[in-house]
Amino acid sequence: MTEPFKPELVCPAGTPASLRTAVDAGADAIYCGFQGPTNARNFPGLNFTPEEMEQSARYAQDHGAKILAAINSFPTAGRTDIWKSAIDDAVRIGVDAIIVADIGMARYLHRDHPDQRIHLSVQAGASSPEAINYYCKHFDVKRVVLPRILTVAEIKQVHDAIPCEIEAFVFGNIGMMAEGRCALSSYATGISTNLDGACSAAHCVHYNEDEQGNMTTRLGEFAIDRYSRNESAGYPVICKGRYNSEHKTEYYAFEEPVSLNLTRLLPDLIKAGVTALKIEGRQRSRAYIRNVVSAFRQTVDAYAAGEDPDITDLLALTEGHRQNEGAFRSKTWK
């Protein structure tokens, strides 16, 4: 009897301690980035120096886990050396794969380090077989991280038409925006998610609570939400704010502060050909990583063993204390 396919559980880490927590909680692979603008979670106090990345890679690999370096923001003219240097460091350290989004960095990596395994970041926004096949053909990409805009049925169609593995998000930020192309935060702060790696740069975020306990969240000069006392809050990002217009008041113009949780869809994703299941949240704490990774480890193992898993309730860790299955089940979600 053949063993049922068990997908790889890919987990986030924003610090070396988080990485060790993810490994110890049962991650098969951990993705993380260097300090600075070369990855899409460029926040104060987060990420790894080259020395920390090297030590962390040893820890992960010694414990049977892979380490994936996210170098997945987009360099602009005059700054490409920073990204190339990060790629060179990651190769020297011996990471198992490098996750890139920029086509120029994909070319650099493939040309200068032809033996290094390449994954295509969700930030590349490659959602069609034509786009993915282009990256596979020209840069020998081994895995694509799919944008969170496809249904499971569409993922199956993509799988059947590409030569590389598929990694799909299963928990965390829903990210319905055109990934790698969103400029909302840049418009409000002048600092780019895609070029600087910082969505809602921390120094532009301001929280103010009045005497009644109502909290207003501002990004730059824009008020993006106002929560009444004890109302659940979300991240301080433009896409999850509530706004007033001529026709509506206090409405979510883009998306609601809800987290993705595909626990119940895992068997369908695996049947659709997904190789790796990705948990979002490099900016989250060790407590989040320990709880979410452990829960998914148990669930994946149970499904692989043909058992009905005890699905741990992760609602307390979700944004806005709400969760759904995003576009994976239906395009009509909001």
Partner: peptide
């Protein structure tokens, strides 16, 4: 409330 950059840095420093 206050300086969000310092707040985030402290959170991440304590978490490591």
């Amino acid at each position: 409330s206050g300086d969000s950059e310092a707040m985030v840095a402290l959170r991440n420093a304590l978490d490591d």
